Computed example of a mutant assay.
Amino acid sequence: MTTAPLIEVEDLRIDLDGRSSRVAAVEDVSFRIERGETFGLVGESGCGKSITALALIGLLRRPLSVASGAIRFEGREIQSLSAAEQRDLRGDRIAMIFQEPMTALNPVSPVGRQIAEMFVLHKGKSWREANQLAVEALASVRVPAPERRVNDYPHQLSGGMRQRVMIAIALACGPDLLIADEPTTALDVTVQAEIIELMRNLCAERGTAILMISHDLGLVANVCRRVAVMYAGRIVEQRGSDEIFRACAHPYTQGLVDSLPRLGTRAAHGRSRLREIAGVVPAIADFPSGCRFNPRCAQATEICRTTAPETTWLDAGGLVRCHHHA
């Protein structure tokens, strides 16, 4: 008898209701995350990563809605749970670090109270006990002078400190799954490295699985065991992080890898230019027919423009959606 994965997404479709029509913002998305695993979801801005994450914790709001597919947590269908059951699950068993802590945190409430709320709501602690646990939570994410910082408001903290507060809130109840949506956005590289290392260490200590969402393939490949690459609402490749760098199967993934800066590479005259993927991710209402990457793909042929590629399982493990992956 096999053990069910911690969370499993199967053929997920998320629709966007427009004034005169309904379009699929995310389509045919499937992946699974095992207990304690770190899984990456990569793609350019606007490809559907964040709304997929919001669907996992039941935070989609109109005009977005889950149209079909399944999201199962420990074998239970999340969509079938009542609003109260989803609230109990959210924050306790599944937690999320949102993309921009300045807008995710309540500007008129001290950060300590925002952390303490988690212990009151999900663990039944008194406010006195919860406030002490909030101090300990700030200390665990290496916030200096946590006894004083619990009384600070978000605007009194630096970007890095606000992100640490978000991590403290997310990990307060010891969740089984942590969703990190661009957790290092707008932070300088030294703070980025500290935040990522902090997340990895805390989650390793607690056995927490991580869904890391980013547009930075290099960051995700260094942190995650497996990576799914998303383009225009569909997963186009899903493989182990080592295979992603060693042998990309999809032209879009290859474009992401080629755009990464590398030490020791120089072009003529001592200067080199990073490769770029021409064009932009299409708007939801303007997804092209066939393979959605075909207008930007140098390898595109007639079949790419007329027929959407099926999912192909690779001999080395993983999957790809491309007519010419061989």
Rank of each mutant, 00 (worst) to 15 (best):
80 S>D: 08
87 R>T: 05
66 V>D: 08
61 R>F: 06
81 L>A: 08
80 S>G: 06
65 S>F: 07
63 P>R: 09
67 A>M: 02
64 L>Y: 13
80 S>W: 07
69 G>H: 05
65 S>N: 01
83 A>K: 10
76 R>P: 10
77 E>Y: 04
87 R>A: 12
66 V>Y: 12
75 G>M: 03
75 G>P: 10
69 G>V: 01
66 V>P: 08
69 G>T: 02
77 E>D: 15
81 L>N: 10
83 A>L: 12
78 I>L: 14
70 A>Y: 06
79 Q>R: 09
64 L>C: 01
63 P>Q: 09
77 E>P: 11
73 F>E: 04
78 I>Y: 08
76 R>E: 15
89 L>N: 04
74 E>S: 15
63 P>T: 03
85 E>G: 04
84 A>N: 13
81 L>K: 08
71 I>D: 00
88 D>C: 10
84 A>R: 15
85 E>T: 04
71 I>S: 00
84 A>I: 12
83 A>S: 08
63 P>G: 05
82 S>I: 04
74 E>V: 01
83 A>P: 13
73 F>S: 02
67 A>D: 02
85 E>S: 10
86 Q>H: 00
84 A>S: 14
77 E>M: 07
72 R>P: 09
63 P>Y: 05
69 G>M: 03
71 I>G: 00
71 I>N: 00
62 R>T: 11
84 A>V: 14
74 E>Y: 06
72 R>G: 07
85 E>I: 11
89 L>W: 10
71 I>Y: 00
62 R>S: 12
61 R>S: 14
68 S>F: 02
73 F>H: 02
83 A>C: 06
82 S>Y: 06
71 I>W: 00
68 S>Q: 14
87 R>W: 02
86 Q>W: 01
76 R>M: 15
65 S>A: 07
67 A>E: 07
78 I>H: 04
82 S>E: 10
75 G>T: 03
65 S>P: 00
69 G>L: 04
88 D>I: 02
61 R>Y: 09
85 E>R: 13
89 L>T: 02
78 I>C: 04
64 L>A: 04
72 R>V: 01
71 I>K: 00
84 A>Q: 14
78 I>E: 11
65 S>I: 00
78 I>P: 03
71 I>V: 01
86 Q>C: 03
